[in-house]
Design a protein around this nucleic acid. Structure first.
Lengths: 137, 137
DNA sequence: CTAGAGCTTAGAGTGCACTCTAAGTCAAGA
DNA sequence: TCTTGACTTAGAGTGCACTCTAAGCTCTAG
C-alpha cells in the first residue's frame, strides 16, 4: 500500500518524495532497527530533517532494496560494506567493483546448484514417502 | 584418503565398514567439532568402540550428508531435529514428516526464486559495469 | 498545556550454529 | 617405557546480523 505516503506536492521543488524510516521499513520489509544498523555500519548515508529525523530519498530506498537482494544471496555484510565503500570512492574503483560482483555471481550460481541438489534430495524423500533412513541421498 | 581406516576384516560379520570421526569429517566436509555437536543435540546417534570412540556406520554418514543438504537450504537446526525425532518415533509419524518436507520444499522454491531475482540484479549491475547508484534494481 | 506517537542516540542483549578449550583416556610406534 | 596423536567429555567462547533498551527530543491532536 501507500506508495504515495508522505508525498509533498507543492512546497519545495525537492525531487520526488522523501520517506520516513517507518515508511521505508514497511515498503522494503527491513526493520527500522536494521535500517539504522545499516547506516551505522556505513551501508547507507541518509539525510535528516530539521529535527534530526531520517529522510530516505528514492535512491536510498533503492539501495536498501539492493542490499536486501545481496543479503538474500548470503553476501556477508563485510562484502556489501566493501562494495559501497568502492561506490563512494568514485569511478576509479569500477574494475574492483566489477570483480567483486563477478565473484559474487559465481557464489550465487554455486548456491543455486546446491539448492537444486538439495531439492532433488527432498523430492526423493517425498517420493518415497516419510523418508526412512535407508533412502538418504 | 584411508577409506579402509579402522576396518576390521575377520573378527565380526559386522557389515561394511565403520569410519572414525576424522574420516567422516574429511569425507563430508563437516568438522569433527560439528559432528559431535550434531550428536549432542540429537541429530545423530553413533556407536562407540571399546575405547569409547565414535564409529560411523554407512547410514550415519548418509544422515550427515542429508543434514548437510538440509543446512544448505537454510533449514533451521530445530526443524532438522524435529524431522529426525519423527524418524526415530517410527512409521506412525510419516504423514507429519511428509508435511514437514513439503513445507520445506516450498521454502526451498522460494529461495530459488529469490536467488534468481538477485542474480538478475547482479547481472544487471555487471552489465552496466561498476554499478552506479542510479542503476539499482 | 499536556499526552502520546514516533523519532533520535549509544550501547547492551539475543539467537543461531558452530568452534574451541581444558583435562583426560587410549593405542601404537621409537 | 615414553611420547605422540587422535580421540573423549562438559562447558565456555565466537562471529554474524541483527534486535532491543533506555533516556531523551519533537511534532501533532485534544
Amino acid at each position: 500500500m501507500g506508495v504515495t505516503t508522505a508525498e509533498i506536492d507543492i512546497p519545495t521543488d525537492e525531487a520526488p518524495a522523501a520517506l520516513s524510516i517507518s515508511a521505508v521499513a514497511e515498503l522494503t520489509g527491513v526493520s527500522a532497527h536494521a535500517l539504522r544498523y545499516y547506516e551505522r555500519i556505513g551501508l547507507l548515508s541518509v539525510k535528516r530533517d530539521h529535527a534530526g529525523r531520517r529522510l530516505y530519498a528514492p535512491q536510498d530506498v533503492q539501495r536498501v532494496v539492493f542490499i536486501t537482494r545481496l543479503r538474500h544471496t548470503d553476501m556477508p555484510i563485510r562484502d556489501i560494506q566493501r562494495y559501497f565503500t568502492l561506490v563512494q570512492a568514485g569511478p576509479a574503483t569500477e574494475s574492483e567493483r566489477l570483480e567483486l560482483l563477478v565473484r559474487h555471481r559465481e557464489s550465487v550460481q554455486a548456491q543455486l546448484a546446491n539448492l537444486h541438489t538439495a531439492l532433488e534430495a527432498i523430492d526423493f524423500k517425498i517420493a518415497v514417502y516419510g523418508g526412512s533412513d535407508r533412502s538418504c541421498l
